[in-house]
Design a protein around this nucleic acid. Structure first.
Lengths: 225, 225
DNA sequence: TTCGGCTTGCTTGTCGTCTAGCAAGTTATG
DNA sequence: CATAACTTGCTAGACGACAAGCAAGCCGAA
């Protein structure tokens, strides 16, 4: 198999390489600023190959987006199952979930940037990927209803979920602008650790006393896991 | 003088019209997706005029950005002065500031989107607008140090400031993606009001008990600058 | 040889920039 | 005043630099 290792033909491998390259370039430089020639070069194929495999630039972009969302959906689902199995009180579950989400976002900057660009473009392509969109809605909605034991609190739980996303995303996107203006190095481990603690603390504090986390066990969960 | 009112030549008026049109188009569609022809059309001039006034597309973009930042700087500065004059305790000042900032962001979506796009582009153009960048840093840094009466709390106050920005921005940007996926209409007054309350509450709760709203050093001055 | 992965040449269209030029003042000079 | 010389706001044509997509062809494996 390795006799023609560099010239061997492997369509699935090529496809993946193109998707990987496109994901990186679309995320880092945006749709317009990325040419199919760039994608081909970055993937180690000729400039025509992306078009050959995906038909059009737009279709390639859609598949990149779909693959990204599929991964997120899987991560959310598995995280939710882990949380359900843990049988901890809501506050502890929330602290763990927020921390995990924070880390996930941090380690998937491409996803954040792609979605950010999509949002700025009015979510036009995202709207054409219905299954994943609804999957996200379902998964996230489930978390919401899980934390909001009293249905009356559902709106507030939704607010908390949005806040969790906002707090976990911001520093990934705004390193070069806001954080830089504040004199913060967005990638510095010390900052990220402090930010993680801060975000988890804020969200947990937001749950406490706001959502009817039934007084139940007077046990006080000091810090997150 | 008003006999040729519509055909009158007015360079400053034209300049402003071009800047207004460019701000809207750059914010809504992005740099690459906006042609100078688009800008000219939207401003009611020919496609050559933007180039005539601003030399290049990049320079036009920079001036749009600079004008935006200048406005924000002015708003932050006036808000800070109002807060200082109010002589309220830090918690009340913070609640007012967060609410005001929330409203400001909501009523200036162009600013948010421009900065968001800048961030995704690595802040390349923003870095070339030094005075405003440093002005923002100075103004924001001042707020931080105002709330962090004990210097040891400065890092935590900075985190809180970042959170305030994150919480106030997110729903402006992610209406078409995240909020839509959650079934929320991002522009609905009911949602925005709830979000405002939630954000202000979260940040104030974050200040409370976290930053040394110091038990006042001996002399209970109540509230001093 | 055949078939599918992959490349290369070409077409068509768009964008930014440059530049010549027109028209509506403005200033200098009689 | 008047009129010629000059400036300035603004337009429109031309050009070069790519981009995306298509189609014809090359080449490696079955």
């Amino acid at each position: 198999m390795d006799r023609h290792s560099d010239r061997e033909r492997n369509p699935t491998r090529t496809r993946e390489a193109i998707l990987d390259a496109a994901e990186r370039l679309f995320a880092e430089n945006g749709y317009d600023a990325t040419s199919l020639t760039d994608v081909g070069t970055a993937a180690g194929v000729s400039r025509g190959t992306p078009g050959y495999f995906f038909g059009s630039k737009e279709q390639l972009y859609r598949e990149v987006l779909a693959r990204c969302l599929e991964r997120v959906r899987a991560a959310v689902r598995s995280g939710r199952e882990r949380a359900l199995a843990s049988r901890e009180p809501p506050e502890v579950v929330l602290a763990g979930a927020v921390g995990e989400y924070f880390d996930f976002i941090l380690s998937h900057p491409h996803f954040v940037k792609l979605l950010e660009r999509e949002a700025l473009d009015g979510g036009r392509q995202l709207a054409h990927i219905p299954p994943h969109l609804e999957a996200a809605q379902e998964a996230l909605g489930a978390i919401v209803s899980e934390l909001a034991l009293d249905p009356a609190d559902e709106a507030e739980a939704q607010q908390l979920l949005i806040s969790m996303l906002a707090l976990s995303w911001f520093h990934v996107v705004h390193g070069p602008t806001v954080l830089r203006a504040l004199g913060v190095e967005a990638g510095a481990p010390a900052f990220l650790e402090a930010r993680r603690r801060h975000v988890v603390g804020l969200v947990v504090q937001g749950l406490r006393g706001r959502i009817g986390a039934r007084p139940a066990p007077a046990g006080e969960a000091g810090d997150e896991a």
